[in-house]
Nucleic acid binder design. Structure first.
Length: 678
DNA sequence: GAGCCTCGAGTTCC
DNA sequence: CTCGAGGCTC
């Protein structure tokens, strides 16, 4: 490439990277004392990979990429997306589409008859992929993963002929996002080839595409007929256009395929008409699609609309009705979760639905079984909700006189009484930690990915160690090294796997505070609430002090998102003697990190803003979203805690109160200026 | 008190 | 992904 980096520079840098990455590997794995964050480490690995991609002749024999690729358990390398890869909200009916259009207009403070254009295009059933081009060169291909972190499939996407290695006239940084898929015809042909070769037969084109893209060996991917279709973009060094439609045409001009059926619509009616047209064409399309995607066309409006949680307000996926199938309910089993909840699971005569064979289906709870009038032996109609989780839609044999299914009133695992609390649907085992299933599930939760994330301590190992009496409470995990010799004598545990496991455990002696709190498994405290609690209290000890103090519930309830129910659950947890002992025991083994906020602090972080009177250029929701983007919070009423009041025409009592309290008051124009500066 | 929205908990198949 | 429940707003 014709830029400043010479080959000599690159060779020098690669040498340094190899040594540096090796040093950090050692610090992390052997000495458990990383000097840099995971993100910084990832950046080194990525720089190494990008340099190697540009100077393939300089790849070193001791290259970190070779070692990383060769690591037996690691699979594909992880990459953090520069911009998160979000999903879209789903709709299943014309009403929901109309509501979406109305909601967009409401948010933008436009009248219902206002003119807002949308794009509409088929939603390909493949797997999302992000392609990063820097100065026209393809430097990274990544799968969606969980939206924030995906897998590096650069070497594999380079083998896809739809994807250019280089392009002219593109922005310096361009991340194209789209779907990697396999056409129906190519899928059939591939399966025929696989069959004659005695290889794996794929259930559907989607799985075939996923299996082909996530290969460690790119030569296998190269032999698979993968295709690509762009539907959007991630990071950009400059805007592509002023509208979605033109931006997609621009991407097409870089020789990246874009859907033929991408159109601009001027109303909900036109969107629905296009949906019906695509639905009609569906069977004749060369690839599988599962719906139609709508996006607000004007990009300035997209920006104003922003995001809710994990989906943009400006987009919608209008899904085709789920495929359904009929089968027989052979049995109902009861599973016991970590909270003691008894969940009935239906065992089915295996049946194909939407390209996979379904044999199990969750029945949720006692009420659901009653609502459907389910009995063992019934014929049922099932579907895969959102094309993923199977569910029973209908019972086809309601009239036969067989005895109804009786939901157990005792825990099938420990025999304790199982009851539903007043006003609750769920039936729970009252055995607590007496119940082996609950003990097991709580340990599983403690080490799970969202909590401590101890790799290699899976379901099977936990069960094995519990059986041996080595593992009863979370603290015991950190004492497993005392059983090292005995473990080495057991089947399936060789030196290497034992060291990997004990190493993974040792690496979590200083766990992230919120993950640790989440891992304790307190009712109603998930990862978000755990983070909010520690943001307020800093350390677990402080939280415990608050929960045990006089009027603790009130102090806890002051935390955002914590009300009486969550506060009571916390107070109960810390009052229960067994929990206190288990926590002290655990804290003697590990030191959770105090909370550090990852959000950058700004002038408005944590401030409270009240909007009053009418707003003319935006809706209240938009104003609220703007406040949140600044790191502030929009509240409904003025109090001593209010930091700013934005008053429009017609403001009354709130404005008066703000003036009495001496709170800063601005008008809408001044607010817009604050937002622009932030 | 109703009607959002967010969060927690449970789950399937590959 | 879905469901119910909890919290917050109007």
């Amino acid at each position: 490439m014709a830029d400043a980096v010479t080959e000599a520079d690159a060779a020098e840098r690669l040498k340094w990277l190899a040594a540096e990455i090796a040093r950090h590997d050692k610090l992390y794995h052997d000495q458990d004392a990383p000097e840099i964050t995971d993100a910084e480490y990832d950046a080194l690995v990525r720089e190494n990979r990008e340099l190697e991609a540009r100077f393939p002749e300089l790849v070193r024999t001791d290259s970190p990429s070779k070692r990383l690729g060769a690591a037996p358990t690691s699979g594909l390398a992880k990459v953090r997306h520069a911009r998160p890869m979000l999903s879209l909200e789903n709709a299943f009916s014309a009403e929901e589409v109309e509501e979406f259009v109305a909601r967009v207009k409401r948010f933008l403070a436009l009248p219902p008859d206002a003119f807002v254009a949308f794009t509409a295009e088929p939603k390909i059933d493949g797997l999302s992929c992000s392609l990063r081009y820097e100065r026209g060169q393809l430097v990274l291909g990544a799968t969606r993963g969980d939206g924030a972190v995906g897998e590096d499939v650069t070497a594999n996407v380079r083998t896809i002929s739809d994807i250019p290695q280089r392009m002219d006239g593109a922005p310096d940084v361009l991340e194209v996002r789209g779907e990697v898929y396999m056409s129906k015809a190519d899928f059939e042909a591939l399966n025929e080839r696989q069959e004659t070769a005695g290889g794996k037969i794929f259930a559907n084109p989607r799985n075939a595409a996923a299996g082909s893209l996530r290969q460690k060996d790119p030569t296998i991917t190269a032999a698979r007929p993968l295709r690509f279709l762009a539907h959007g973009w991630g990071e950009l060094s400059e805007p592509l256009a002023e509208t979605q439609y033109e931006a997609m045409k621009r991407i097409e001009s870089f020789r990246i395929p874009v859907a033929d059926l991408l159109v601009r619509c001027n109303s909900a009616e036109e969107m629905l008409a296009h949906y019906r047209a695509i639905e009609k064409a569906r069977a004749d399309l060369p690839f599988d699609i599962d719906g139609v995607v709508y996006k607000v066309d004007r990009l300035d409006l997209q920006e104003r609309l922003g995001f809710v949680a994990r989906a943009p307000r400006w987009g919608l996926a209008h899904k085709f009705p789920a495929e359904k199938a009929e089968t027989t309910l052979e049995a109902i089993d009861i599973q016991v979760g970590r909270t003691g909840k008894l969940t009935p699971v239906g065992r089915l005569t295996p049946v194909g639905v939407g390209g996979v064979i379904v044999a199990n289906v969750t029945l949720h709870n006692r009420d659901e079984i009653e609502r459907l009038g389910l009995r063992i032996g019934d014929r049922v109609r099932i579907q895969r909700a959102g094309d993923v989780i199977p569910q029973v839609v209908e019972n086809l044999t309601r009239d036969e006189p067989r005895p109804p299914y009786v939901f157990p009133d005792h825990c099938p695992e420990c025999g304790s009484e199982a009851v539903a609390e007043e006003g609750e649907v769920d039936v729970r085992c009252t055995g607590g930690l007496i119940c082996p299933a609950q003990r097991f599930e709580r340990l599983r939760h403690f080490v799970s990915r969202g909590a401590l994330d101890i790799e290699g301590l899976g379901e099977k190992s936990i069960a094995e160690f519990m059986e041996l009496g080595w593992l009863n409470s979370p603290a015991d995990i950190f004492r497993l090294h005392n059983h090292r010799e005995e473990l080495l004598g057991r089947e399936g545990w060789k030196e290497k796997s034992v060291d990997n496991l004990l190493g993974a455990i040792e690496a979590k002696r200083q766990p992230d505070g919120p993950r640790f709190l989440f891992g304790l498994g307190i009712r109603h405290v998930g990862i978000v609430t755990a983070r909010d609690l520690l943001k307020c209290f800093g350390a677990i000890e402080e939280l415990r002090r608050a929960a045990l103090s006089e009027g603790g519930e009130a102090e806890l309830s002051s935390v955002q998102g914590v009300g009486p129910v969550v506060a009571e659950a916390l107070v109960d947890f810390f009052h229960e003697p067994h929990n206190r002992e288990a926590l002290d025991d655990l804290l003697s083994e590990v030191s959770p990190q105090p909370f550090v906020s990852d959000a950058k602090q700004t002038e408005w972080s944590g401030k409270t803003i009240v909007f009053t009177g009418s707003l003319e250029t935006m809706s209240r929701d938009e104003a609220k979203a703007q406040a949140e983007r600044l790191g502030a919070r929009a509240a409904g009423s003025v109090s001593g805690k209010t930091d700013l009041v934005v008053a429009g025409p017609g403001a009354g009592s709130k404005l008066k109160k703000a003036e009495e309290l001496g709170i800063r008051v601005v008008n809408e124009a001044e607010w817009a200026k604050i937002v622009a500066e932030g």
